[in-house]
Amino acid sequence: MSNEKPELDIEKPGAVLQGYLDDLLTVSTSLNMVAGLDYVAEREPPASATAVVLEPEREVRRYQDANRPHWAQQQFDAIIICSGGHHFAVPLQELASLSLLDEFESQLFTETTSALVVSERATGRFRIAHLGRLLLLEDYQGAIDERQAYLLSLNGENWGLAVASVSDRLSIDPDAVHWRMDRGKNPWLAGTLFESQYPLLDLRQLQPMLKRLSS
């Protein structure tokens, strides 16, 4: 078809609208990346290169337990990430995307020991927390040259988490997690995986920590 679109006047109100549409339709933050782990496939190809929505059905077992976050009421998927010399399990459902951290943003962390940097992006200010530094504080073991190479971003949030590596994807049975009855002083720690002993993160609970850091 020919392209006889009339001259369009995409001005100020248009810019706001365009930003909204970009946000809704931006493919770079698609779930595909998380599901297929496209960016971390150097080690081994992902089990399935298809998107989350294309996965074969699996038996759904219902768990009802108040100590478990909503995403852990049934079998759930998690990726294993490393930051500050520690492994953590992160539930996929809470993630909007997993992408390579921008070169410049990665650099920011080597120039400071802060757990939080603010990056000016085309879409506005975006805060990035260095996961190891954020969680481990004085216990931080990561060598200063541990480069944070990946960015985890969350649905509907204008902040993300920088991590050094992403190693694995697991399907986790909620019964294979030692759930914490009382989150106490580490509200972000949902529990521990029985087999690997990796801490399982409740990402939403990191938000208050970020608020405190940036104020």
């Binding site: 946000d23 809704l24 339709l25 933050t29 698609s30 929505v53 294309l54 909007a96 995307s97 509907g156």
Partner: peptide, 17 residues
């Protein structure tokens, strides 16, 4: 409820199934 990235592609993804 929408403000999240890529939310506009939900239907497109679902229909591929």
């Amino acid at each position: 409820s929408v403000n999240s990235n890529g939310m506009g592609l939900k239907v497109s993804r679902a229909l591929t199934l």
